[in-house]
Design a binder for these strands. Structure first.
Length: 959
RNA sequence: GGGCGGUUAGCUCAGCUGGUAGAGCAUCUCGUUUACACCGAGAGGGUCAGCGGUUCGAACCCGUUACCGCCCACCA
């Protein structure tokens, strides 16, 4: 016999192990079955399971378990992502905390990378174990890691091909530089935040002491200010960048500066001459209308600098400290941190008297013009430091080219976003796509398969500077690389391949013959998203032509949150189409974000993060999963509260006890089919048709990714229909002396419970599996795990309209009597006589059939049909029948009257409204006939009810 | 600035094709009747953000205003 409650802490690990040991998570590989594949968005190997994962993984598991039960050949491909920066950061932090004087720098690349691998083997992928606690049924035997051997091969192969097609190239461009991690990061990893800042106004003196008349006019063209100036005012929020200015730009229509466009100014501190240029970029209304142009440290300025061919002078090193790499930074600032340099530059400008000064109109006191201002500043989303736009050499993917088919695939409906709105976001990004910077100056990741040697065309540059004049060889293996190099330098040239250091060469000057060349591999690694972009096919064995690739690609659906549409979805589309010629998945289901109960994003720093593992400990995985599914409506975010999880745990307990009731009553599972037509008892016919309806609804909802509707339908069926009504309605049958009735009911109840377990299984795998097994004890031997049973497909034969009508009537009558009793204050324990008055033959038959259960559930002494309202009875109305209850001596008659009056009043209001509606010729004429008819019936009903209620009211008067 | 979404019961939200406004939680009343108090029965609670329009009929469609979110791009 079952205990009174389900114990998840005992059952969950036991069941999970049993499933895994039995290989339940593996695809059937049945070639006759339709393949169904989902690749998991690989969590970071450093990750711990948070609520976002819990939702994401639950929804995928619901789909996976559902489709597996539907007989498809199901693969859920799991794995983790190497997460370049995040992982490197974890290991660096550990080194720092260990206090052993070891650091990334002291260890060197090779040793450091070894340590990261060691960390990965030991503590990485903790999330996998946590996922198992959630009950997810991914095929762990196929678990992959973005840096494992096969995936690394795929990465190299893709890189080489794109390079050879010139879709990957090297370029010197402005990138977002993270001075903390000392690497380039992508636009998407930058978060713009508003912070307190200031705007300084500097005077740049005109060269040669030239002057001009600076005139400001109001809208009417009247002069409001006029001054002779030998300087131009510029405003900046980042004074330190002035050292790299290449020009001052003004708008071509700005009359104030028209006289000096084309003249030169002498850049203070740097002591260089720079021109005043006209460009559309400056906004005359903002600041002074004149903008300093720092091509190497600002994205907008960079555009201007490119248009005008201005020099772009880099001012900082990789740490964000001032540096004279391009010879622009005066010695006194070299080595200063950029923020220290900012202060120094401002101080020096003030000292030079080159601040624009404001004069206090009253005291005449002069102060430098420094405005406090909210400014938008870019921050690295991992490091949290201010990002520096920096001009560096990087590797780029021509994303624009790859985006075209990716865009078309969605536009043409090969891949659908669900909800469809997200396609707009996707298009919008692809339509404005920038070159994708894929190189990262990190050590943890896929090292770029490019080696450089001397370029004969630029051999001077090469020997002068190890960072320029290089010829790149891109290859996916050493053999291939050596061959490429020999093809280039000559077959007799000795090729040496080095991991780091400097490349070098030996060449016979007279003949130009290369004797020996040392090629050095690029130090950079690839953006983590480069390997993630290949995930849908690399995990299936690509570039090998594997059976799995053939079978499971393209995947059925990608399930993810909207925040990685750009990072990941778009890039998988690009790479999938490019390398397989097919879309990577047919649907992209975008689910909500999980927020706290107040609707705020959960975060550790806010302290409002809920830990899914805590919730699982306390309420069980099923409760958490069911909560997630029930709340996963489209479009909206999910506000998760512990209370909600508790409520769903209670639902599990309810189910458990319903099963216990079945067990007590020997309602064995029944391994046969059931159809309503074969059954004798309306209540059994009815529940079978209700089961079919619940499955039909849940199936349709799951097919449409409406998890909330599917879970809601199951919840409602189980709690309201099965527990609240069916189990109560069959109690008399189970206790009856009629063996045939008892047997049928036991079987139908057992069968229904089995169907419930299947229906709930995708959402609540543990409790359902546990019950499935427990119930086997008394019934026929179960054939394997519940999770591998067939999801039933009920055809139209499962409806039982007559039985449904009959049961609806009985349920309605019970409800009506209960409501009346409660309203009138009849003591709950009192058993009262009830009579249906004027009942027609159908109702009398129904009453005789269900009288016992009606009496039981409505606490009646007797339930009869009578010709007239018995003496001393108080009537209510159900349908068009008066229901007489002998309760006059138990209640306050005045209250009973009031109740009737209220109901009559309500009905009369309805009648007035309906009369008016039906009296409207337009309505009769234009509304569909069935709507008109419906309204007529409603009117007739209401009138009849008023009549009956009024009669009851009159009878009351006479008491 | 561009885009997307939201505003419905005290709270969180459903409401699909326009046809009598719903659920869960919370609240109140009653109740231990042999599955379940993590329970059961019953009840109260709404100007569907405002305004205008289309329509026989609008929570739903259109326009507009207000407020609240989020995303993208941003003024040096």
């Amino acid at each position: 016999m079952l205990n009174s409650r389900f114990d998840p802490t005992d059952a969950e690990p036991r069941l999970y192990k049993a499933w895994e040991d039995a290989g339940c998570f593996k695809p059937s590989m049945d070639t006759a079955a339709e393949p169904y594949c989902i690749v998991i968005p690989p969590p970071n190997v450093t990750g711990v399971l948070h609520m976002g994962h819990a939702l994401n993984h639950t929804l995928q598991d619901v789909l996976i378990r559902f489709e597996r039960m539907r007989g498809k050949n199901v693969l859920w491909q799991p794995g983790t992502d190497h997460a370049g920066i995040a992982t490197q950061m974890v290991v660096e932090r550990q080194l720092a905390e260990a206090g052993s004087n070891e650091s990334r720098a002291s260890l060197g690349r090779e040793e450091f990378t070894k340590r990261v691998w060691a960390w990965k083997e030991e503590s990485g992928g903790a999330i996998v174990g946590q996922d198992k606690r959630l009950g997810i049924s991914a095929d762990w035997s196929r678990e992959r890691f973005t840096m494992d051997e096969g995936l690394s091969e795929a990465v190299k192969k893709v890189f080489v091909q794109l390079y050879n097609e010139k879709l990957i190239y090297r370029d010197k461009r402005l990138v977002n530089w993270d001075p903390h991690f000392q690497t380039a990061i992508s636009d998407l990893e930058v978060e713009n935040k508003e912070v307190d800042g200031a705007m300084w106004h500097f005077k740049y003196p005109l060269e040669g002491g030239e002057t001009y008349t600076y005139v400001e006019k109001d809208e009417g063209g009247n002069v409001v200010f006029e001054e002779e100036r030998d300087w131009i005012s510029i405003a900046t929020t980042r004074p330190e960048t002035m050292l790299g200015d290449g020009a001052v730009a003004v708008h071509p229509d700005d009359e104030r500066y028209a006289p000096i466009v084309g003249k030169m100014v002498r850049l203070p501190l740097a002591d260089r001459l720079i021109p005043i240029i006209a460009d559309e970029y400056p906004d005359p209304e903002f600041g002074s209308g004149a903008v300093k142009i720092t091509g190497a440290h600002d994205f907008n300025d960079n555009q201007v600098a490119k248009r005008h061919g201005l020099p772009m002078l880099r001012l900082m090193d990789e740490r964000g400290c001032m540096s004279d790499v391009d010879g622009a930074v005066p010695e006194k600032y070299v080595g200063m941190d950029r923020f220290a340099a900012r202060k120094a530059v401002v101080d020096d400008i003030i000292a030079l008297g080159l601040m624009v000064m404001d004069t206090d109109p009253e005291t005449g006191e002069e102060t430098p013009r420094i405005e406090d201002k909210k400014i938008m500043q870019p921050f690295g989303d991992r490091s949290g430091v201010v990002i520096e736009p920096m001009l560096t050499d990087q590797w780029f993917v021509n994303a624009e080219e790859l985006a075209k088919p990716a865009r078309a695939a969605v536009a043409d409906g090969l891949t659908d976003f669900i909800p469809a709105n997200w396609a707009k976001t996707y298009f919008n990004w692809l339509d404005n796509i920038e070159p994708w910077c894929i190189s990262r100056q990190l050590w943890w990741g896929h090292r770029i398969p490019a080696w450089s040697g001397p370029d004969p065309e630029r051999i001077e540059e090469f020997t002068d500077n190890p960072f320029t004049g290089r010829k790149y060889f891109v290859a996916s293996s050493f053999e291939e690389l050596a061959q490429l190099a020999k093809d280039f330098y000559g077959q007799n040239c000795e090729i040496e391949i080095a991991d780091e250091g400097l490349s070098s060469f030996t060449r016979v000057p007279a003949t130009g013959e290369w004797k020996k060349v040392r090629l050095v591999q690029e130090p950079d690694v690839l953006d983590t998203w480069f390997s993630s972009a290949l995930w849908p096919f690399s995990t299936l064995g690509w570039p090998e032509k594997t059976e799995e690739l053939d079978m499971f690609y393209p995947g059925a659906v990608l399930v993810t949150a909207f925040d990685i549409i750009f990072f990941w979805v778009a890039r998988m589309m690009m790479m999938g189409l490019k390398f397989t010629g097919e879309i990577p998945f047919k649907h992209v289901y975008i689910h909500a974000l999980v927020l706290d109960a107040k609707g705020q994003k959960m975060s550790k720093s806010k302290g409002n993060a809920m830990d899914p593992l805590d919730l699982i400990d306390q309420y069980g995985a099923d409760a958490l999963r069911f909560t997630m599914a029930r709340m996963a409506g489209m479009g909206r975010n999910i506000r998760l509260s512990e209370q909600a999880v508790e409520g769903n745990r209670n639902f599990g307990t309810k189910l458990w006890n319903a099963a216990r009731f079945c067990q007590m009553n020997e309602c064995a599972n029944w391994d046969g089919e059931v159809e309503p037509a074969e059954l004798k008892h309306p209540v059994n016919q009815w529940i079978v048709s209700e089961v079919a309806a619940a499955f039909t609804e849940a199936t349709a909802a799951l097919e449409a990714y409406r998890f909330d509707d599917a879970a809601g339908a199951a919840y409602k069926f189980v709690w309201n229909t099965f527990c609240d009504w069916y189990l109560e309605l069959i109690k008399p049958l189970l206790n009856s002396q009629d063996d045939e009735a008892k047997a049928e009911t036991r079987r139908v109840a057992g069968w229904t419970l089995d169907q419930i377990l299947k229906l709930l299984h995708p959402f609540m795998p543990f409790i359902t599996e546990e019950l499935w097994e427990a119930l086997s004890e008394h019934g026929p031997k179960r054939d394997g795990f519940l999770m591998l049973q067939d999801w039933p497909d009920f055809g139209p034969g499962y409806t039982a309209p007559e039985a449904s009508e009959e049961m609806d009537w009985a349920i309605g009558l019970i409800t009506e009597i209960r409501s009346t009793r409660s309203d009138l204050g009849v003591p709950a324990g009192a058993k009262v006589p009830m009579a249906l008055v004027d009942a027609d033959k159908t109702l009398r038959v129904r009453l005789s059939r269900h009288g016992e259960v009606i009496a039981r559930l409505a606490r009646l002494e007797t339930a009869r049909a009578e010709a007239e309202t018995p003496e001393g009875a108080i009537s209510t109305v159900f349908g068009d029948t008066a229901v007489a209850l002998k309760i006059a001596d138990l209640i306050d008659v005045a209250e009973a009257k009031a109740r009737l009056d209220k109901e009559i009043k309500g009905l009369e209001k309805d009648i007035t409204g309906l009369d008016k509606k039906l009296g409207n010729a337009n309505f009769i004429e234009r509304a569909p006939a069935e709507v008109v008819e419906e309204n007529r019936e409603r009117l007739a009903d209401s009138k009849l009810r008023v009549e009956k209620l009024s009669a009851a009211r009159t009878a009351l008067e006479q008491l």
